[in-house]
Design a protein around this nucleic acid. Sequence first.
RNA 1: GCGAAAGUGGCGGAAUUGGUAGACGCGCAAGGCUCAGGACCUUGUGGCCUUUAUCGGCUGUGGGGGUUCGAGUCCCCCCUUUCGCACCA
Length: 858
Amino acid sequence: MSFTLAGSMSSTTTKSDEIHRIEAKWRERWEADRAAFVDTGKPAGEGTYLLVMLPYPSGDRLHVGHARTYFLTDALHRFLRQTGVTVFCPMGWDAFGLPAENYAIQKGIHPRISTLANIAAMKEQFRAWGVLYDWTKEVTTCEPEYYRWNQWFFLRLLEKGLAVRKKSAVNWCPSCLTVLANEQAEGGVCERCKTPVVQRELEQWFLKITDYAERLLEGLDTLGAWPEKVVTMQRNWIGKSTGADLDFAIPSLGETVRVFTTRPDTVFGATALILAPEHALVPRLLDKHPKRAELQAWVKSVRDQERIAREAEGAEKDGRDTGVKAVNPFTGQEIPVWIANFVIASYGTGALMAVPAHDTRDFEFAKKYDIPIVKVIEEERKEEEEEDLLRREEGEGRAPGAESLGGSTASAYTGEGRLIASGPFSAKSSSSARELIAAEAARRGIGGPRVRYRLRDWLISRQRYWGTPIPMIHCEKDGWLPVPEKDLPVVLPADAPFTGTGGNPLEKVASFVNTTCPRCSGPARRETDTMDTFVDSSWYYLRYLDPKNARAPFDPAIAKEWAPVDQYIGGIEHAILHLLYARFFARILKDLGLVTFEEPFSALFNQGMITRQSPTGRVEKMSKSRGNAVSLDPLIAEKGADAVRAFILFLGPPEKDSEWSDEGISGPERFLWRVRATVDRFLQAGSDPKGQPAKVDTPAARARHMAVKRVTEDFRAFSFHTAVAHLMEFHNHATSLAGDADADVGETATTLRTLVTLLHPIAPHLSEELHERMGGAKSLLLSGWPAFDAALAVEEFASIAVQISGKVRAEIRLRRGSSEKEAVTEAESNGIIVKWLDGKQRVKTIWVQDRLLNIVVK
RNA sequence: GCGAAAGUGGCGGAAUUGGUAGACGCGCAAGGCUCAGGACCUUGUGGCCUUUAUCGGCUGUGGGGGUUCGAGUCCCCCCUUUCGCACCA
């Protein structure tokens, strides 16, 4: 050891040499000892299974913006392991997807080559960061050993009727040249490239997640350890509505059109029937129209519109009267049939009854096109409100009643009330009329009560190469047939041409496309679409448990031991993508008898993003494309992994976004060097590093208990930034103890050992090194976590605020547990308090044990 | 527009959930050590005022009201920011 005190460091080069020496040494140790501390055997009692979001093996090196989730997970992993919990913390690769394929088109490098290279680079980065994963359980989704089980699951879903091929209006991304799931086209833009999507009517493969809508909704109530925000987002996405289906007859066509409404109580006010331009009946409705061609052109233009433009806020409502009449089944009156852009084809039946008087959208539409507005709900107001309204009207010099109480014609009244002009239902309340009218519809065979969801089926077809081939074969004679299970996996051909033009490269690989029909053995074609990569990540957490299993996706017995995931960590961006699909898949797996749970992730933690000012001047998410990324590799090379880890964890509450500051790292960096200096100074003095304190209840012992308590609770609460702060405080105490010539050597040794142990989840390399110098025989990962005694985790003396009428005037120090009487006596001997009490009459005193004494005076 | 979260020094952020606001760190200032320093060490640091000095005073958590002995924390109104949803009948 050539270095003694941090203060004597004369060159940063020697500093970083020292860091590298220590970090390299411990990386090797952990690797060599892996079997000892990475225990993936059966959980001993309270088995905690910890997980990270799958990282995407992107072409770029990971930067500071990516690091938080890994450091956070590793700190938690190490902490739990130190406390004796058996933890399984695996890592794998969500390796399929568009970026690798686009890279292949640009550079001519096969996606598999670039992906595997990226994976190797990332593993090397993880090693340099000191994050521990059990690499014996690594999973790579782009390898046939993995994706064959995607295909296997697809066949199971097909058998159960949960995988279907159907034609429907789907989202098409003109930039990615593929269809997308509804979840990947949120807000009308492609999730990956932000290009506005357009609707296309195509036949595609879907997984029937809608069959599970209710179960997915119910399960949300059990997710108490999930961020409320994510639960709410999923609830809204599933979008349950209760109402009724009603059939409207179109006598001239001999057809009925079914609509869904949440307000069957307003049916007597339905003055039009409005269909989405995509509605199946539209061509026939236009058939006899005098301006048929013009209307057809309009319908086409609406359908071709980008979703974002059509659905944008304030988008003008646009419609056309078909001239055809429908019959309101409750009033018996003829009403016009319209086609309008604001009716969404894929929700409900793609048709609605317009009740302009009681729906703002219908109202707006009716105003524009002069559709009758018939009021059928009378608002019930409380007396005060009526009086209030009356007063307002009088005040404005209008005749009372000019503004009718049930709602004016200036807007729709969308609230509840009492029915009027509704035949036999008049005078009923909205809520009872809803049920009565729905029941009446059921009785008459024209609909009935109905629950609907916004959730759409999961479109999994992708017209791209780099994904799991969908194991289906199309025969001219026998139609669509599954690939026989014995022929799995359907392997991606290695020789596809990546030209970027002419659609999916798979279509051009004759040896892949051309096959024989499993039924008639005649010539047939393989499906060339591949699966959405979210299929891969829907069950990978189970494959981690049993990654080499060649006979099943995983062993249900092992899954029963470990799953569901105890703690899941990932970004908020997957709130309704991955996390919804994985919940859906868990239910499928349960129904297949492979797992016993429905909720795959018992607890979820969403870490916030790291932000930084970008060249545009805005503070935004750190990313290479925004030009505000800070490279991690050089930073770690200069400061060491421990300092970078400590700083990133110190930035702020991990669930919130934190702004990166280039200077801030010096705080945690200096802290780590000071810890090292303190331990070295102690050892240089020749003190016994294994010494034990002479007495139990000492101020130093209390400081230790307090530090252990705080840091332990911080880690349990994911409050890593305060854990670092509390470690700094504890170090400040340890320094003064180490510098105190009168201090008990055993006491100091114990304090330093405690400090180093608590520091390990934050700065694993340095803490291991110092632990060893202090005589630790085993890795800190195996050395246990110090216990604390809550009774000792407080200072012996309390400083008590003395208030006069609620204002702090003085502070007194008393032994903890002192009585109110003692506090009053002590306060009365305090000069300032005496002055404040002088000439005043005491009203009462309020005493908060060990905290505060408030003397109220007049 | 609807919903949710948040607003604390020059900055990042603490605050045992109604009990001494500003922990910890950055930055800044003074001093030390240095040939020197952007290294390291020590001390100070919300604002305003006051004192020769001290155990001094006032004010202060977006703004305004309220409850309470006591409010960053609870209640009401308003402002601002961020995020989510956004024609789902």
